[in-house]
Every structure is written in structure tokens, then in C-alpha cells.
Amino acid sequence: MTGPVDQPRRLTRDEVAHVAALARLELSEEELELFTGQLAEIIEHVADVAELDLAGVEPTVHAVEMTNVLRPDQVRPCLDREEVLAEAPSVEDHRFKVPRILGEAP
């Protein structure tokens, strides 16, 4: 990216409500107001970086500068099924029983 970067517009209350809905968070009117302000401030703080001339700087993908952390393709022991299913709220036929799903998998 070259040249000056436009000042980002402020985060809206509708956007916060949308993200909350996607995360299945139920927010009261007061919380929505509070978080919109707080989140907007955080984003604006991070946006300070836009004032720097970053031409030619590679984006940082990870805080640790490592690549190719891999393991050999070797089987390791699994968990005991009864132990696993004992933790589930509901089980049927050795499967996790979950509430009715609306719609197909994304």
C-alpha cells in the first residue's frame, strides 16, 4: 500500500449488534452502547498504525517468527469413548445428542 490512508470511519452500533448476533451473544441496550464505544476506541487505537509509512513491510502473520512446525504422521492413542461421552450433556447410540438443527451445515 502506498500513499496516505483514509481515516477509518467509526464503528457503528448496528455493526456491533451484528457481530454479537453472529457470536450468539445477547446484549442489552446499555451493553450495546457501552461496547460500541469501547470497541470503537480499540479499533481507532490500532488504526494509529495507518499513519506510519509501511510501504515494503510484510504483514506480521504470527507473533512468533517460525514456519513449518510439523509432526510426523504417526497414530497416537485416542480417548476412551465412554470417558468422552460421559462428559456430554446427552448421548444416544454412542453419539453426541444435540438439539434439533435448523438448516444444513454451512
Partner: peptide, 11 residues
């Protein structure tokens, strides 16, 4: 899916 009462999951 339509009309299912619940779903079972195998991971």
C-alpha cells in the same frame, strides 16, 4: 433435517 427432533454427532 426438516422434521428432525434432534441430531446425533460422530466426531
Amino acid at each position: 433435517i426438516h422434521g428432525a427432533d434432534y441430531s446425533l454427532v460422530d466426531y
